[in-house]
Computed example of a mutant assay.
Amino acid sequence: MANAKRVGLLFGIVFTILGVVLLTKLSANYFWSIFLILLGLLFEFGVLGRGAGSFVPAGILLVIGSVLLVCNIFGYDKMNYLWPAFVLAPGFGLFQAYLVKKSKGLLTASIVLIVLSAILFMATFFHVSWARVLFGIVLIIFGVVILVKSLRRKVE
């Protein structure tokens, strides 16, 4: 019965938003971005899933829906600056899952994605021409750390 209630809630929200879009003559593009945000909120508050695993799709949908809403309002030319948010989205969701489960793996994965996104945002916002070199150095350091850790595991 709970599953039927969740499906009914989802469809009720979708039809309500669609009705508001039609009555206010908003572009259908607004509907999809708002729909993604609301779907993310349903995951966030446990309507469409429970436990730490529901926070990953919640974070992804919230960030991507927000980026699309900003682009709908201010123009898709802003995507030139907002594209690193697609790297941030899973990092945000993984970090939320970490806050629930306290797993070191979730924290590591989220930090890597969030830091990578921050580097990409900085390179994009400031049009840093040396961003490729910086990103290359970060990848080399990351690769060396992985190699060293894997070599230590074989010895132990």
Rank of each mutant, 00 (worst) to 15 (best):
M1R: 11
M1T: 12
N3P: 02
G8S: 11
L10H: 07
G12M: 07
I13K: 00
V14E: 00
G19R: 00
V20A: 11
V20P: 01
L23W: 14
L26M: 07
S27H: 12
N29G: 10
N29H: 12
Y30G: 01
Y30H: 13
Y30T: 01
Y30E: 00
I34C: 03
I37S: 04
L38E: 08
L39V: 02
L39K: 00
G40P: 00
L41K: 04
G46S: 01
V47S: 01
V47L: 06
V47A: 14
L48A: 08
G49P: 04
G49T: 10
R50D: 06
G53F: 07
S54D: 04
F55M: 11
A58M: 10
A58Y: 00
I60V: 15
L61D: 00
L61H: 01
L62Q: 09
I64P: 01
I64H: 02
I64A: 03
G65C: 06
G65L: 05
S66F: 14
S66V: 03
S66I: 13
L68N: 09
V70W: 13
V70C: 05
C71P: 12
I73T: 14
F74Y: 12
Y76K: 13
D77T: 12
D77K: 13
D77A: 05
K78L: 15
K78V: 14
K78R: 14
K78W: 08
N80E: 13
Y81A: 11
Y81P: 04
L82A: 11
L82C: 10
P84G: 14
V87W: 08
V87S: 09
V87Y: 06
L88S: 14
A89R: 07
A89T: 14
G91K: 12
G91P: 14
F95W: 08
F95P: 08
L99E: 06
V100W: 01
V100N: 05
K101P: 01
S103D: 15
S103Y: 03
K104E: 10
G105W: 06
T108K: 15
T108W: 07
S110M: 09
I111E: 04
I111W: 02
I111N: 04
L113Y: 15
I114G: 04
L116I: 04
A118W: 09
A118V: 13
I119P: 01
I119R: 03
L120D: 07
F121S: 07
F121Y: 15
M122L: 08
V128K: 12
V128Q: 05
S129M: 05
W130E: 09
V133C: 10
V133L: 13
L134A: 13
L134P: 09
F135Q: 07
G136N: 11
G136F: 11
G136A: 15
I137T: 09
I137P: 10
V138I: 13
V138H: 04
L139C: 15
I141N: 00
F142M: 12
V144G: 05
V145R: 08
V145P: 06
I146D: 05
V148G: 08
L151T: 10
R153H: 08
V155E: 15
E156F: 14
